[in-house]
């Protein structure tokens, strides 16, 4: 059997990691040919939706490269990138994709050797993990992508850094622990509701069926369903016996 050749997308910042990749070339360092690089000016340009879209379209792994912390050509871009990638990893995990499939690295323009080494290692990691399999026809990853597009997630992605560094409007500082708990909660809820919406978009389903499909406790699904209904995203399609079946509007 032919060995599994993963498809890997790399987003590299122009000033450090892309330059490091160029230096690897200038130094004629060999590394596996699985990576496809997309150049961006700053790692802060990377929107979690890009990464999730790539997973949705069949990438086996995503590598994001930026300048070392403190060296960002645009001063703070990579700090924002770090937070965004961290949250994206959480989303991937919810969607059942191992977080190892997304890697954020800092590579300087002088680190050609390191760049080649990282690509080697990452390709190897992805080979070990094997091809990406989705349970429900990409619904998990589609849901994750919808979360990444949601207002709540996007606000969170920026504010996490701000709340820890400078505090909120009332100068209340948050610890990393607190903010992570908050982030987990928001992302979890957003994800479940997105996931429910995707399921009931196809066909009308009961809370019980949904709970089974999503491997969640029915009361939790019901709570989300009530919220969705109130927000006008879901409605009762019909009632079978005593069980209401919901459908997306």
């Amino acid at each position: 059997m032919k060995e599994f050749e993963p498809r890997i997308i790399g987003y590299l910042c122009n000033w450090c990691s892309y330059a490091g990749a160029d230096l690897a070339g200038v130094s004629r360092l060999e590394y596996p040919p699985n990576l496809r690089v997309i150049r961006v000016m700053c790692s802060g340009r990377i929107d979690p939706t890009f990464i999730l879209d790539a997973f949705l379209h069949g990438t086996d792994g995503v590598l994001v490269g930026g300048c070392h912390l403190g060296d960002c050509h645009y001063i703070t871009g990579n700090y924002y990138a770090e937070k965004k990638i961290e949250l994206t990893k959480k989303l991937l995990q919810l969607a059942g994709i191992p977080r190892e499939r997304l890697r954020l690295v800092w590579v300087s323009a002088a680190e050609g050797v390191r760049f080649a080494q990282i690509v080697k290692e990452f390709t190897e990691t992805i080979k070990q993990l094997g091809p990406l399999n989705y349970k429900n026809e990409l619904k998990e990853i589609q849901a994750a992508k919808e979360v990444a597009e949601s207002r709540n997630f996007r606000i969170l992605a920026v504010k996490v850094k701000e709340f820890v560094d400078n505090g909120n409007k009332y100068r209340e500082l948050f610890t990393t622990h607190e903010i992570n708990r908050l982030a987990d909660e928001i992302i979890n809820n957003e994800y479940i509701s997105a996931r429910i919406r995707l399921s009931i978009k196809e066909k009308a389903m009961s809370v019980k069926e949904l709970a089974q499909q999503l491997d969640l406790a029915p009361p939790r699904v019901l709570r989300h369903m009530t919220d969705l209904k109130r927000a006008g995203f879901a409605t009762i399609d019909r009632i079978e016996g005593t069980t209401p079946l919901y459908k997306a509007t």
């Binding site: 987003y11 997309i38 000016m41 340009r45 939706t49 890009f50 207002r151 996007r154 992605a157």
Partner: peptide, 25 residues
């Protein structure tokens, strides 16, 4: 031209020319 604003806009209303969302996707 770093594009951090584009990646952060909650309405995806900021377009980073030369590196737009659509282009990168």
């Amino acid at each position: 031209g770093c594009g951090c604003c584009g990646a952060s806009c909650i309405e995806r209303a900021v377009k980073m020319s030369g590196f737009t969302d659509d282009q990168l996707i």
